[in-house]
């Protein structure tokens, strides 16, 4: 036999993710896929659609909307779900603020990031979702590095990192009682570079924010933040124009950008391959709260 039966590492990662999507679709009643328009969720949705070809995606997508969105991202979100013919469920943080379930932070550094947890859990409960796909990757952050692909959440939506189910081979244990649910992370083993190589190879469209563009920004805590209608400048903070791109896209008030000239997927791949700073370290003010910032939020039910 002369043929070599080898898969490239991207096809291997894709196969693993496809297996996970099919496993969930076959064994859960009401799965949902978290879709923010960020690159990881775009890749996740792309792989999911491929997993069920030629049938349509057998579950809806959910956007937890902080109300502080980049306009380009919302436009991209709507266009993408239309193109794929998937059902979009939007859960609004504003609704929880209006109903008094959460209280909005005040001051110049106010962010709705943490409030999303309440909105997300409310949506899960209202719709009875029992499996929630998230685009989190283990290379992103050290609390995520220890999380399972199938991550159990109790009836309060909480994660118990000390009591996780062992996960062996490709046998995933999704058993749960009514009211509990499983967060599922099909891209667990992908790195930022894998995501970009896949975007390049598959020619996946992203919101334009991910590529170098000129926009007004200001500096805060050593990071560049976009100057949008949602932020209040503190004393001494001055907006200026810069050529930037976003490495992650989340709530507009706490997602930083980096100076960059990378305007195509190829250029971004090259930039990432040579960068020496992690994507969250460079761009996420929310992760800088404390060393255990992510772990604490995840325990409460965060993404």
């Amino acid at each position: 036999m002369t043929a070599t039966y080898e898969l490239s590492h991207l096809r291997m990662l894709e196969a693993e993710a496809v297996h996970i999507f099919r496993e969930v679709a076959a064994t859960f009643e009401r799965p949902v896929l978290l879709f923010s328009g960020g690159k990881d969720s775009v890749v996740m949705l792309h792989v999911a659609a491929r997993a069920f070809w030629p049938a349509p995606l057998p579950f809806p997508v959910l956007h937890v909307d902080t109300g502080h969105n980049f306009d380009e991202v919302v436009e991209f979100r709507d266009r993408t779900v239309r193109r794929l013919g998937v059902r979009l469920v939007v859960a609004r943080v504003q609704d929880d603020i209006d109903a008094g379930r959460v209280v909005e932070e005040t001051g110049p550094k106010a962010s709705r990031n943490r409030l999303q947890t309440t909105t997300l859990l409310r949506a899960i409960e209202t719709h009875g979702f029992d499996a929630v796909f998230g685009g989190a990757r283990r290379d992103e952050e050290k609390a995520r590095a220890k999380e399972r692909v199938f991550s159990f959440r109790d009836s309060f939506g909480q994660w118990d990192p000390r009591n996780q189910r062992p996960e062996l081979w490709n046998l995933y244990n999704g058993r749960h009682r009514r009211g509990e649910h499983i967060r599922v992370f099909p891209l667990s083993n992908w790195t930022e570079l894998d995501i970009w190589q896949y975007i390049r190879d598959e020619r996946i469209e992203l919101p334009p924010l991910y590529y170098a563009h000129r926009r007004p920004v200001f500096e805060r805590d050593g990071m560049l933040l976009a100057h949008t209608r949602f932020v209040t400048l503190a004393e001494g903070e001055r907006p200026f124009d810069a050529l930037v791109r976003f490495r992650t896209v989340g709530d507009a008030t706490c997602t930083g950008c980096v100076e960059s000239t990378a305007a195509t997927p190829d250029e971004v791949v090259a930039e990432i391959a040579s960068t020496r700073i992690t994507e969250r370290g460079a761009t996420r003010a929310d992760d800088r709260i404390s060393e255990a910032g992510m772990e604490d939020r995840k325990k409460e039910g965060y993404f």
Binding site: H9, R138, D139, E141, K142, A143, R144, A145, K146, P161, R162, Q164, S188, N189, T191, L193, D194, E291, A292, E295
Partner: peptide
């Protein structure tokens, strides 16, 4: 400390769980 990501691991100075680490060379991931 890089991958002892959980608070309990850092506090007790022990690694409790499986940690996944990723790296790549031009030849392989």
């Amino acid at each position: 400390l890089l991958t002892d990501g959980l608070r309990a691991e850092r506090e007790q100075g022990i690694t409790i769980d499986v940690a996944h680490r990723y790296f790549a060379t031009p030849r392989r991931k």
